[in-house]
Design a protein around this nucleic acid. Structure first.
Lengths: 211, 211
DNA sequence: GGGTTTATACATTCAGACGTGTATGTATAA
DNA sequence: TTATACATACACGTCTGAATGTATAAACCC
């Protein structure tokens, strides 16, 4: 009824986005109504239409800037020169990735919506490209570090950096999908550390001292 | 207008399912209309409602019995006693899995719909369980074979069958998702064989003859 | 700084399109 | 003769987007 101050308006905008996360997660993006979003936010549909042109724009606003912090933190570890072995940097980066997920419930929620509760089609088709792009970038970054590992001599014999990077990327993607599908349950989450350790151990040059 | 024979009726039922695959893949399940399905099938909505109670039932009919042949063929290879090394059986089973995918365009289409073009929620929530179940079963089967490999002495040192099975399952899941996301493009499809080979090679006991 | 104006931040209302499910019609296979 | 395999028609609810209303924060003016 009454006009709010700019700060309050920005706050209601965030309320709407938060409500959208809740509603999208519960009913799926396509099945969700802007009235449901408005109700959960304690507002009217008019407020939603004031801040966003339609559901599609609200969806994109919801997922904007949730991936960047994850990517930034992982890259920081991946390219950290402090590790004696490049393989250690990759292993630490993988751990960092799932640590970020563990810390941010919002990120988990948005990822679940993007993977399970959203039909990747039509207007949201841009989404697919935006989801793929960070992945491809990650693939290339990891490949560079694997290359450094090869030069460093820490790779097991006969392993090609390109193939290893693709395999690691598949591993990360698969693990992410599995965690999301299981709702980040405690069991699988507890296994993540060990799986990363195993994944990297398989790539390391075996210690031949006992041979 | 005219009543069809039973055979013709079954044929139109298949036409509807085929049209549903086309429409669902293009627009997403939630955004698809039964009229769109009817149009693509060259029928009226009445025909669709005659054969299926609603969109949900049509969806379930569409995906019924598309996974079974895949599971059956993979299991047949996985449990084939003819392989000298259990790890060879696992590797062959993985190849068989992606060979089935390569052979059946319908299976690829349905998988794409289930993974990308469908909001896993509400009535379709049963879907998630049905997608997970074969996966869990696969996990257990692979674990048993890894166990046999351990007894057979073909596993590299320090590797636990349970962890390996989980890792292989993650690998398969990740590779599947990646292929689907890329629309089974030629590049990635060509890499599959090499990736499977790499995945299994990392688990095999290294030949110490040159040591 | 006080009064006026204006743009803002919503709430409410409305028309229209759309999709669903069912009811009805109908020619024909059984 | 009857049940089947559809096509057609209808009633209903629902969601959208825009139009309108409105109280007030903010900008402007003196």
């Amino acid at each position: 009824m009454a006009r709010k101050s700019k700060k309050e308006a920005e706050q209601t905008r965030q309320q709407i986005i938060e409500a959208a996360r809740t509603v999208f997660q519960r009913h799926g993006v396509a099945q969700s109504t802007l009235e449901q979003v408005a109700n959960v936010a304690g507002l009217s549909r008019g407020a939603v239409y004031w801040h966003f042109r339609n559901k599609s724009e609200l969806f994109h606003a919801m997922r904007a800037d949730v991936l960047e912090p994850m990517i930034g933190r992982v890259d920081a570890v991946l390219f950290d020169e402090g590790y004696a072995d490049p393989l250690d940097a990759i292993e630490a980066a993988l751990r960092e990735l799932f640590l970020v997920l563990d810390e941010s419930a919002t990120l988990r929620q948005v990822l679940e919506i993007m993977v399970l509760r959203c039909e990747q089609v039509d207007e949201l088709v841009a989404l697919q490209a935006e989801v793929e792009r960070p992945g491809d970038a990650f693939l290339q970054k990891v490949e560079r570090v694997y290359h450094r590992a090869a030069l460093h001599g820490s790779l097991a014999a006969g392993l090609q950096p390109a193939a290893l990077a693709l395999d690691t990327w598949i591993f990360v993607s698969g693990l992410l999908h599995k965690l999301i599908a299981r709702g980040f349950d405690a069991y699988l989450s507890g296994e993540v550390g060990g799986m990363i350790e195993l994944h990297m151990r398989l790539r390391r040059r075996v210690n031949l001292s006992g041979c």
